[in-house]
């Protein structure tokens, strides 16, 4: 039997390389655009910071999508499904490999953010310092910690639910071939896609609500129950979807045939 750790290493390596490609691409954009700006005589460290701040979201999104593709491709590729390991371990290791690599990408983005921030901090316009830090407020640092902790938790949960929803739709539509003729599969698959879209819309709602709430309460220490409620809903969705995914994967989920 294959050890989970060995499988994790095997699954992580190609994803790690991809994440590094994203970082390399990001650095290339930064270098080229800043050389161009410097050439024009407009370079400032604050402009560099702003560039990093906006690029990090784009790169994180690209990484997120790429890892989602890896998640699905791993489950549908016959080569990987021949590995002698329990389906639930396979599923967990697959998601864990993507999650760790996403965290790695986040860490790199954070390092870039902090680096450019520290270089450009003294050149910040006054209103921008307040927006970025909120440190001028008496409880700024404490609130900042709470804000980012909750944002990270919500972000991670959101990503996990998004991935498990994609898997759910994918597994169920693929498994329909075990029971139904092709025409009925199309009908059932349409319904499943609609349910998937509904879950996604609901999820985005929760996330947006949480972000809005956190932003509005940024300087306040009052109760954060609605944020935790949102997190609870996402955990519940995640548990239910994971259970369904594992059930479908074990019972009917076949990899692609050639």
């Amino acid at each position: 039997m294959t050890k989970s750790w060995s499988l994790f290493k095997a699954f992580s390596w190609p994803r790690f390389i991809r994440m590094n490609w994203i970082v390399a691409f990001e650095l290339l954009i930064l270098v080229v655009s800043n050389i161009w700006t410097a050439f024009q005589g407009d370079f400032t460290s604050y402009a560099l910071f702003r560039q990093v701040s906006s690029l990090m979201f784009v790169m994180t999104f690209i990484g997120l999508v790429m890892l989602a593709v890896y998640n699905e491709r791993t489950v549908t590729a016959p080569t990987y499904r021949l590995i002698p390991i329990h389906e639930w371990k396979f599923y967990v290791v697959n998601v864990a490999a993507s999650l760790i690599n996403l965290l790695y990408l986040w860490a790199i983005q954070l390092i870039l953010y902090v680096l450019t921030l520290s270089v450009s901090f003294n050149h910040f316009p006054a209103q921008a310092s307040g927006l970025v830090f909120g440190i001028s407020h008496s409880d700024g640092l404490k609130n900042l910690t709470i804000f980012w902790t909750l944002m990270t938790v919500m972000g991670l949960l959101g990503i996990l639910v998004a991935w498990s929803t994609i898997s759910l739709v994918h597994y169920v539509t693929k498994s329909a071939g075990s029971f139904l003729p092709r025409f009925r599969q199309k009908f059932v698959n349409t319904i499943i896609y609609l349910v998937g879209v509904l879950i996604t819309v609901r999820l985005v709602n929760i996330l947006m609500g949480a972000i809005g709430y956190l932003s509005s309460r940024f300087f306040s220490t009052t109760e954060l129950s609605s944020v935790w409620l949102g997190a609870g809903v996402m955990v519940a969705i995640l548990i239910v979807e994971t259970a369904i995914n594992l059930g479908v994967l074990t019972k009917w989920g076949e990899p692609n045939s050639n």
């Binding site: 190609p14 590729a77 016959p78 080569t79 002698p84 050639n258």
Partner: peptide, 20 residues
């Protein structure tokens, strides 16, 4: 899962990227 540990089969190498 037990059978997979007793049988060796390579299914057309699907899943590996062509750059590998």
């Amino acid at each position: 899962v037990q059978r997979k540990a007793h049988v060796s089969f390579t299914d057309h190498l699907n899943g590996f990227s062509t750059g590998q």
